[in-house]
């Protein structure tokens, strides 16, 4: 008979320090082609977001009514839209908006979610029960509907959209952090801190938080992908940035009527841009998760 629960003694399990671990994680990531692909695409969009109009071949705002709805060609690689604006330039410059709002919103959501998760996981009892109900209620609402409602109610500035993303992500991240903290709080170093008379805030943020960073990092990258999608959706629904500013979601919403007229390029390249960014973030996040979980 064979029992398969074999404890594997690894000769490689030698003592390793923190910087060494970090270097090992990095080395492992660099060896993964999927991570490199994702990181490359991400880098391209970051460059576009920062240098936007400098590297764009044309101004994204210049209208040329003699050259409307032109198919992709040597002069205009991605073609032109119904006002004769260069699509390539609009796609490049249009990255800025999403590349600012999505990460900031995710950072805000991660910060709030982490704090909430620490409180729920560390105290358990009634804080956990009452906050848990609110979290569940939030999770029951579809993200886009919640976002749409809040933006409509509060007006649509970038700050509001960032806030909305932060709020809708908070319960999701809180749930993950809470689960990690529940395991961590049972370890003896937490008891040792209580025996030193440390306060709850010190134990949560100085003792426990550094030990739950790995799941938080993974959760952050996963949420970032969703945030990009959410920002694009809100723009598509017309509650994001306003015309004539170039923006992927907004452009798809304005131009998708043109597709039936055969002008597919006015939607396709924005859509591909959104997809490439979401996929890139997911490639990076998957690789990080895989490396950290080993």
């Amino acid at each position: 008979m064979s029992v398969d629960a074999v404890p594997i003694e690894s000769a490689g399990a030698l003592a390793a320090g923190r910087s060494e671990v970090r270097r090992e994680v990095l080395r492992e990531l660099m060896r993964s082609p999927l991570f490199l692909l994702g990181a490359f695409i991400l880098l391209v969009w970051i460059v576009c977001a920062i240098f936007g109009s400098t590297i764009a071949p044309h101004s994204p705002f210049d209208q040329n009514l003699e050259k409307i709805n032109q198919a992709p060609s040597g002069a205009h690689l991605f073609g032109t839209d119904q006002l004769g604006r260069d699509m390539l330039s609009r796609v490049i410059v249009g990255s800025r908006n999403i590349m600012i709002i999505a990460p900031l919103g995710t950072v805000l959501g991660t910060a709030m979610g982490t704090s909430l998760g620490l409180v729920m996981g560390y105290f358990r009892g009634w804080p956990d029960d009452s906050l848990g109900r609110i979290v569940e209620a939030f999770l029951a609402l579809p993200l886009v509907v919640t976002g749409l409602l809040v933006v409509t109610a509060l007006g649509h500035s970038n700050a509001i959209i960032i806030l909305v993303i932060g709020i809708v992500f908070t319960p999701l991240i809180a749930r993950t952090v809470r689960a990690a903290v529940l395991l961590e709080r049972e370890l003896d170093y937490v008891a040792a801190a209580r025996l030193r008379g440390e306060g709850a805030a010190y134990i949560m943020f100085i003792e426990i938080l550094p030990n739950v960073l790995a799941p938080i990092l993974v959760e952050f990258t996963v949420r970032l992908g969703y945030a990009i999608f959410l920002v694009a959706t809100l723009s598509f629904l017309g509650v994001g940035i306003q015309p004539p500013s170039p923006d992927w979601g907004l452009e798809i919403s304005q131009n998708f009527g043109q597709v039936t007229a055969g002008y597919w390029w006015e939607v396709l390249f924005d859509a591909v841009a959104i997809i490439s960014l979401v996929v890139a973030v997911n490639l990076v996040s998957d690789s990080i998760e895989r490396v950290l979980e080993r």
Binding site: L187, D188, Y189, A192, L195, R196, E207, P210, N211
Partner: peptide, 19 residues
């Protein structure tokens, strides 16, 4: 508090691995 302290069974659990 300082009069009463403890040495735990498992130092991996008793010492914060990030400190």
């Amino acid at each position: 508090r300082k009069a009463l302290q403890i040495v735990f069974q498992n130092p991996d659990s008793a010492l914060n691995r990030r400190h």
